[in-house]
Design a protein around this nucleic acid. Structure first.
Length: 272
DNA sequence: AAACCTCCCTGGGGGC
DNA sequence: TGCCCCCAGGGAGGTT
C-alpha cells in the first residue's frame, strides 16, 4: 500500500479539486472491498459540500456538510480526479461524482482498501481510528515516547515501529529505511534499544517521510498521485528491495530477513 | 498482555 | 509460450 507519504501525496493532489465542490452522487461498481462498501448510507452524501480533505494515519477523510467519507487505499489503491465521462477500467470500484463534471475515482486491484461513511457528529468517529498512535509529526512522538512504549517488549524493533498503535504511517518500506538510517538492527528486541537511539530513530522516521512526500512518494508498481503520476522516492531507497546489492554507506553486502511474513533488508555492519 | 499467524485479493515476475 | 509458485506498499481478527 501506499504508506503515509503516498496517502499524503494523494491528499495534496486531490484536495484542490474537491474542497468547496458539492457531491453529485457516489457510484459503487464493486462493494466487496476490505469491508463491504455502505452503498445505501453513502447516498446521504449526495448534494453535500466538501469542506476539507484530511488524513489520519493512512486514512483519507473527506469532510462534508453531511458527514465524512473515509477511504483507505489498502495495498494497491490509488485515487485520481478525472472527467466523469472517462470510461472505467477493471478495478475502478468507486466514483465520487462532483457537480462540475469531474469525479474522484478509486482503483484498487487487490481490494484491500475500503470506503466508509461516518455520519456527522458520530462519537467516537470510527472504531478503526480509535486506538491509533500519534502521527510522526505529533509532539508526543519522540525518543522518550518510543523508549517508554518499548520497555520490556521482546518483539522486534521493526514490528514495534510498524505497529499503528505505537505510531501511524510507517509501513514496510519506510520501516526498513528508517532503521537503516538510525543504524538499528531490525531484529533487535524493541525493549533493548536505548533512548538515545530511539531519539535518532524518531528523527529519521520524520525526515524520511518528509523527503518521500517531497518527491511524491514511492511507486513500486501501481501507486499514482491524484493526477496519475508516479512518485520518485524509489530512487532514494537505501536498502528496501535492494536484494544482492551492497550497503550504500559501507559497501557490505546487504542481507534479507523474513519478519512477520514481510521482507526486511538491512546492512549487517551498519545496523546493530 | 503481548506476540505470532492467517487471511482477505489480483497480478507481476521468475523458474522450469 | 505457458504454467506454477512466490511475492507484493496493510492490517484486522484470531490463536497461543
Amino acid at each position: 500500500m501506499p504508506e503515509l507519504p503516498e496517502v499524503e501525496t494523494t491528499r495534496r493532489g486531490i484536495a484542490p479539486h474537491l474542497v468547496g465542490r458539492c457531491i453529485a452522487r457516489t457510484v459503487v461498481r464493486e462493494p466487496r472491498l476490505r469491508w463491504p462498501v455502505p452503498v445505501a448510507a453513502l447516498s446521504a452524501a449526495d448534494g453535500a459540500r466538501i469542506e476539507a480533505v484530511e488524513r489520519r494515519a493512512k486514512y483519507l477523510l473527506l469532510r462534508t456538510t453531511a458527514g465524512t467519507i473515509m477511504l483507505h487505499l489498502g495495498m494497491s489503491g490509488s485515487l485520481r480526479v478525472i472527467a466523469t465521462t472517462e470510461p472505467p477500467f477493471v478495478h475502478d470500484h468507486f466514483d465520487l461524482e462532483l457537480d462540475n463534471g469531474q469525479c474522484l475515482r478509486l482503483r484498487d486491484p487487490r481490494r484491500f482498501g475500503s470506503v466508509h461513511w461516518l455520519p456527522a457528529g458520530a462519537e467516537p468517529e470510527h472504531a478503526l481510528l480509535a486506538s491509533l498512535g500519534p502521527e510522526p509529526w505529533d509532539s508526543t512522538f519522540n525518543g522518550e515516547y518510543l523508549h517508554r512504549r518499548a520497555r520490556g517488549r521482546r518483539r522486534s524493533v521493526k514490528a514495534f515501529l510498524m505497529d499503528s498503535q505505537v505510531v501511524v504511517g510507517v509501513g514496510n518500506i519506510y520501516a526498513n529505511e528508517a532503521l537503516f538510517a538510525a543504524g538499528i538492527h531490525p531484529a533487535r528486541a524493541a525493549g533493548r534499544v536505548s533512548r538515545a537511539r530511539y531519539e535518532s530513530l524518531a528523527g529519521h522516521v520524520r525526515a524520511i517521510l518528509e523527503r518521500a512526500i517531497e518527491v511524491g512518494g514511492t511507486t513500486l508498481r501501481d501507486f499514482t498521485d491524484g493526477a496519475g503520476e508516479p512518485g520518485y522516492f524509489r530512487i532514494e531507497l537505501a536498502v528496501y528491495g535492494r536484494t544482492g546489492e551492497c550497503c550504500p554507506a559501507c559497501s557490505t553486502p546487504l542481507r534479507t530477513l523474513r519478519q512477520d511474513q514481510r521482507s526486511t533488508w538491512y546492512c549487517p555492519r551498519c545496523q546493530r
